[in-house]
């Protein structure tokens, strides 16, 4: 085998790669965990495709069929749902750890940018997948979510019609979201992921800024087998956690979507959109001459662009100097997200 594929070269290459060892090394694992959860999503997603039917008159029933008739269907769907949630949580942690470590600084700007778009796509995966069971909660969440895009100046209305496949959320929206979720998004995601991983491979792991200031020589650990085996162990642990969650808290289905039923009381989006949902609640109907929701959407859009461009405006970190303002900003963002999520959850 080795004479045909030269596997020893690959092992040699991997064992020459080193991972820095320091007090913040734990954050290095979340990129790998996110990757593992994405793989799990792809595998369980493909399995669900064997039974799922993407049309408004069959979607709910097909999910019901998966949950009640297909052997271990409940397990596969529950693993898909739980690993989706943990995937987004892991991506959040990965992104914020990169932010606090300022690992986006020169020369890793493109790794940050591809990572940012992978994060946005992860949210888009969540949003599009949420509609697929065609239940009541998903129906209204999609109505609200797509209506918010209509608030974007100039392109909002055409974008809303494009997403919905018409003026309203109907079976046409489900078909589109199904296409986005299982074909378009995975295609773009894999492309960006390859770029992201390629950049990480080429540039190696980022070291803490403090170490480079102190010109400290950090201890290292070979990527293969030391770090790789630790990664695998953690993936196994994550898989076990998901299995426990899926068995004890299987994914729910709720009521079938009915366009003539009122939105149910206590309706909330998925937890990762809750902070935005809660913020929009505080916006009054009008702020000066613009509608409250337009102002809210613009505010989040500006925040998103600033977040994306942080490697370019945080020039201090790129010069290898400490920038405490970034830490304060990160702490503010984390607190904002956590507090508003909790308020949204309990109210």
């Amino acid at each position: 085998m080795d004479s045909r594929l030269q596997l020893s070269d690959l092992v040699k290459f991997m064992s020459k790669k080193y991972v820095p060892v320091h007090s913040h090394s734990v954050w290095y694992y979340f990129g790998g965990v996110s990757l593992f959860l994405f793989i799990l999503q792809v595998v369980t997603g493909i399995l669900l495709l064997f039974y799922y039917k993407g049309s408004s008159d069959q979607a709910y029933e097909s999910v019901q069929f998966i949950m009640s008739k297909v052997e271990f269907g409940w397990l596969i769907r529950s693993i898909h749902a739980w690993s989706a949630n943990l995937f987004i949580l892991s991506v959040f942690i990965h992104m914020f750890s990169v932010f606090f470590e300022k690992a986006y600084r020169k020369p890793r700007e493109l790794t940050w940018i591809t990572g940012f778009f992978l994060f946005v796509l992860s949210l888009a995966f969540g949003f599009s997948g949420y509609l697929l069971p065609w239940n009541e909660l998903a129906f209204f969440a999609t109505k609200v979510g797509t209506d918010i895009t209509g608030a974007v100046p100039f392109i909002g209305e055409p974008l809303k019609v494009f997403l919905r496949g018409g003026d309203d959320v109907t079976g046409a929206t489900l078909s589109r979201f199904f296409g986005f979720h299982v074909a378009l998004f995975p295609g773009i995601f894999v492309f960006l992921l390859i770029l992201h991983l390629l950049f990480v491979q080429r540039q190696g792991m980022s070291e803490p800024i403090e170490a480079s200031i102190k010109k400290e020589k950090l201890k290292t650990m070979p990527f293969f087998p030391n770090f790789f085996l630790r990664d695998l162990l953690l993936w196994l642990l994550v898989l076990n956690i998901i299995a426990i969650l899926a068995v004890f808290f299987p994914a729910e289905l709720g009521m079938k979507a009915d366009p003539l039923a009122p939105a149910p009381a206590g309706i909330k989006p998925e937890w990762y959109f809750l902070f935005m949902f809660q913020t929009l609640k505080y916006f009054p109907a009008h702020i000066l001459f613009i509608e409250g929701e337009v102002a809210g959407v613009l505010l989040f859009a500006v925040a998103g662009v600033l977040w994306l461009l942080v490697p370019f405006w945080d020039t201090k970190s790129s010069r290898g100097q400490l920038n405490r303002k970034i830490n304060y900003l990160g702490v503010f963002a984390v607190l904002f997200i956590i507090i508003l999520t909790i308020i949204g959850w309990i109210t």
């Binding site: 209204f140 109505k143 609200v144 797509t146 209506d147 918010i148 366009p259 003539l260 039923a261 009122p262 939105a263 149910p264 009381a265 206590g266 309706i267 949902f277 929009l280 609640k281 929701e293």
Partner: peptide, 22 residues
């Protein structure tokens, strides 16, 4: 609802038309 497109309902006790979404 004129806010974000949800379907409203009537709340008999408060005599208001209410949107559960926001």
């Amino acid at each position: 609802c004129t806010h974000l497109d949800c379907t409203v309902q009537y709340k008999k006790d408060e005599k208001i038309i209410w949107c559960a979404c926001h």
